[in-house]
Each structure stands twice: as structure tokens, then as C-alpha cells.
Design a protein around this nucleic acid. Sequence first.
DNA 1: TACCAGGACGTGC
DNA 2: GCACGTCATGGT
Length: 273
Amino acid sequence: MVISYDAKYFHPLHTLDCGQIFRFEPFKEGFLAFSGVKACYVHSDGAKTFVECDDGDYFYNFFDLARDYSKIVEMAKGYSIPLLTRSAESCSGLRLLNQQKEEMIYSFIISQNNNIPRIKGIISRICAGLGEKREFMGVEYYTFPSTHALAGAGAEFFKRAGCGYRDKFLDETAKRIDKEGIGNLEKLNTSALKQALMGYKGVGAKVADCIALFGFSKRDSFPVDTWIEKIYKEDFGGALTDRNKICDYFLGLFGENSGYIQQYLFYGKRLNL
DNA sequence: TACCAGGACGTGC
DNA sequence: GCACGTCATGGT
């Protein structure tokens, strides 16, 4: 099936390239995007953006299409913060994704002290090694591995995939989730969820915020990484150095809209807007 | 060569 | 509780 949507508020590149997802690749006029075991083809003609897939309900939710981003953009511009206004205007088609919880946990453990191209390569190799081979629109791809498969792989597998010192974190966390499941994480409010996530090996404050934001749709999260630190100093004139306090500062400023604002700022800064 | 990348852990105080 | 050194890897 094919979903059609106003391109002004759904820009494939901005949505996929802003750092929230690590599994996508150029394809024809747009991109193939992968989530869990599923795949879709997303492309735009400038007026409309199209999503072609086998599971419309899944990707309607995945791309957050029930939400009116014209309001999000106006909300962001309402703060009259130069970088934020430039970002919201230039990236009005950036949408926050609703992704798979466990995929986000493992992906963002890999992301710590790492760069995005390398993160994508590592995740790609892990999928190729432990995922299930499938085909979509004539292209072969691998699903994201189940926790059970990850738990049985052993730390050596992650080491060979290029994870570096994070190999033991992945191994330990996968084994724990394989044993316990993540049902206990459901129904928690954002701060309780963050604390619970930080109980997994390899998950600190920033990684927990990313998992909550992209995996659990907790938009009142504000991940603080090196780029946000730079933005805090250069664009907000801040003097704090503790990342937890910087996080609290932004949460106080943007509240329930923190996640959207954070992505505009992060991506806008990376694009040097 | 030293520094950076969507940081977190373990130790010592 | 807080500061600090350390942790692989690949790119500049």
C-alpha cells in the first residue's frame, strides 16, 4: 500500500538523517527505511511524500503521521530563539519517529562516545549476522535481531562487529532483557522510565533519554550530548557544565515539547544553519 | 599526532 | 554524593 502526506511537514531526508534512526539507505528517488523486522520505501516529489510498504498501520505510527506538525513548527518558532527558528523553518518536515523499544536500547548503547557513520556500520553488521534475511521491493535486507538472538551471540560477536568496549554492555543487557523482558518499563512516566533504563549496563542519562524519546515516545525528554552542550554554550549563553543540569535547564524551558525542540536544535546545528 | 564522535563505568575520595 | 581516568574504533 501507499501512504501520501503533505511534503512540507514530511521531509524524508530530514526525518531520517537527523540522528534518530540508524537503519536507512538511498533507494531510487528516496530511501529505504527499516524498523524491527519491517521495511518501507519513502520518497517525495516536493509536494507530497509517499510511504510504500506492506504494513500501513505500522508505518503510519512509525512516522508519527497522526500528529499535526504545523503546530509543532509554530510552537518552536514561538520561542524566538534564532537557531531554533531557523531550524524549524528549514526543517519543518522533520518528524519524530516512533521506533521499536528494544532496537532503540541496543542501538543507543552502541551510540555512546561514537559517531553516526560508524554506529550505522556496526548496527548493519549486527543485523547481517543475527537478523533474518528478507526482501522488500527487490532489495535484500536483514531484520533487527531479536533480544533472544542477541543474548545468545556472546560478547565476542559484538567485538567482531566493531562495537569496541561496548561489547560487554550489549551482551549483559541482552541477556538480562532475554531473561526479564521489558514489560516492567511500560506504564512508567518519563522520569521513572529514565531511571529504570539507567539500570541497564551501558545506559546512562543521555542514552536513556534517547531510548525514552525515540522508543517510548516520551516527548518530554531532552538528550544532552556533545552537540547540545555546544548549542547550550554558543546559542543560549549558558554557563553550566554538568550535563544533568543542562538537561534540567532545557526541560524547564521546553517542558512537554522538549523532544521536538531538541531535534530541531541538534539537526540544525549539525547542518550549520 | 592528538582530538573528536548523539558517554558510561569503576575507582577513590 | 562528586571528580577523574579509562574504555575500542575510525575519521580528521
